[in-house]
Design a protein around this nucleic acid. Sequence first.
DNA 1: CAGTGGTCTAGACCACTGG
DNA 2: CAGTGGTCTAGACCACTGC
Lengths: 270, 270
Amino acid sequence: MQSSVDIVPEHSALTALTSELKVQSASSSTPAFSPLYQQIKSLILTSLKAGEWKPGEAIPSEIELAARFKVSQGTVRKAIDELALENLLLRRQGRGTFVATHAEQQVQFRFLKLVPDRGTRGSEGPAQRDIIECRRSRASADVARALALRTGDTVLQARRVLSFGGTPIILEDIWLPAAPFKGLTAERLANYQGPMYALFETEFNVRMVRAEEKIRAIPASDIHEQLLKVTRGIPLLSVERIAYTYRDEPMELRRGYYRTETHHYHNTLG
Amino acid sequence: MQSSVDIVPEHSALTALTSELKVQSASSSTPAFSPLYQQIKSLILTSLKAGEWKPGEAIPSEIELAARFKVSQGTVRKAIDELALENLLLRRQGRGTFVATHAEQQVQFRFLKLVPDRGTRGSEGPAQRDIIECRRSRASADVARALALRTGDTVLQARRVLSFGGTPIILEDIWLPAAPFKGLTAERLANYQGPMYALFETEFNVRMVRAEEKIRAIPASDIHEQLLKVTRGIPLLSVERIAYTYRDEPMELRRGYYRTETHHYHNTLG
DNA sequence: CAGTGGTCTAGACCACTGG
DNA sequence: CAGTGGTCTAGACCACTGC
């Protein structure tokens, strides 16, 4: 090292960059200290939300971002690390950092945790997807609450059956807020190859990032009898999912009913 | 920086420490490159397994570990970061890094994902736990396979009911390999306050680190009718869990049956 | 071969905890 | 106040990818 006296700070980004937006508030009761990399993280997140880089595309290199934000590479590195951990970005050594997407082969059906008892998903061939219906309707009280809408707001409602090896296994009822999905039709849904969430990305710029599921055991009703070919009253897995976009905005309510004679819901506890 | 010529490497841990165990194999077809911090990570993991530091205790500070392993603080930092991410260690700023434990108040019932429909767990008061039985038996074929034993090996078998607010909600059948849990009795189980996994840690030095669950909907049988006070045939959530210790050794098979009229299994998808 | 992410170091300083 | 983890920097070098 040089002969600098250690009282003189060699580097002091937080101080030096006081002219930027990175100042600590240091005002109210809670100091609300936020490290630099967290601020960089939200800046990247903002660009992500604004669609500056599309799903599947590469974002600028760490060096470029470091120059843009006037911080060291290590700091943007830490910001990107966290975003990658949250599955928002995908790092590929030697190639770059990419905006995560549901369209990639490797991570298709990332949110579907139902797997066949023997082997893994895919071993039984691709799923057959039949759209039963897709229509506009009014949000009931519980649907509205789940989607942060008001009762009576317009929603899109879809129903579909997923079959594996010719056997219907899953019935899903899906509710979407009408506004962000303007123009979505049954045909569009039926003809699209690949996961539904990939369609949402490419066609409506809506990216599902996180989801919460509530799981119960319920008896099959008439609808299940018809569409899943099961006898009324037998146990089904009820999976209610609310999917969220970047900023914790609920964007989809999905009620799934799973037959679990030959499949099971798989979960890993860390 | 100093006037060092950039061809001369200033720091080169991997080279300089060739005398240690950190050499790259660089022999077979796959180079099997392993970064330094990964090697540090397994060294720490080894100490953890060997019980050098007990659950709840602090491990040496980053500076001490860096000195011990002859690497920079940043490298042990990255190793510890990953172990903390895997819930094996717990960082506490200003205090130190601690061996994770199931006994801590905050993370009790880390693996139990059943929550009441309204509010969060705990709002309904503590669970009542009744040990129905606890005995030695022989592993059936499927139990043996789950625990990596041979059919007929001795196992400990326990059955208990968990009640919330006076209502029986969960029936659990638990199988443990006899050897590591020598001396475990029904009394020991019944009298222990706190999570079962905390007992395993303190009494048998067995730490459950990870678990896999298979979830199904099944009809209630006679046993459920008796112990959960439900009518035969109503849907129950069947949760089969295999819990693993550090090195992916299966150490517990647990078959849980959950009533889901007032509770649900909650899961977050990332 | 240039460009990307990934590793490693050394050192300064900050935030937090406890005695 | 000393000690701990947490942040930030600057710079060197390595591993991997594609052209």
